[in-house]
C-alpha cells in the first residue's frame, strides 16, 4: 500500500502510474481533496513485484496522450 499527497497543480482525476522496480504495478486517480489533503493511494497487492531488500518506487503522471512524466518524491 502506498499513499501520498500531490500539489494543487495536479487536477482531480489525473492518473498516476505507480512503478515498483521498473514495472508499473497499477494506475490510480488523484481524487478530490478531503481533510487529509489532495491524496492518492494504491494497493500493490501482488508481492511478486517486490524483492528482498531495498526496492525502487517511482511515480509517474499519466498525460492525456498516455505519456508518462516522472514525479519527484519528497
Amino acid at each position: 500500500m502506498i499513499w501520498g499527497t500531490v500539489g494543487d497543480e495536479v487536477t482531480d482525476g489525473t492518473e498516476l502510474a505507480v512503478a515498483v522496480n521498473g514495472t508499473v504495478a497499477t494506475v490510480v486517480p488523484v481524487v478530490a481533496p478531503d481533510p487529509g489533503g489532495r491524496r492518492f493511494a494504491a494497493l500493490l497487492a501482488d508481492d511478486r513485484l517486490f524483492r528482498a531488500g531495498a526496492n525502487r518506487l517511482d511515480l509517474y503522471l499519466v498525460g492525456p496522450d498516455g505519456r508518462l512524466r516522472q514525479l519527484s518524491i519528497s
Binding site: I2, T5, G7, V20, R56, L57, S72
Partner: peptide
C-alpha cells in the same frame, strides 16, 4: 518501463511495505 534515470525515487523495504509519501511537482 525503462528504469528511470532521474534521481529522487524512493527505496522500498518489504518489511515496511507502507510509506507515507509526499509528492510534489512534476
Amino acid at each position: 518501463l525503462r528504469p528511470p534515470a532521474a534521481p529522487g525515487s524512493a527505496g522500498w523495504a518489504p518489511s515496511a511495505p507502507s510509506i507515507p509519501t509526499r509528492v510534489c511537482c512534476p
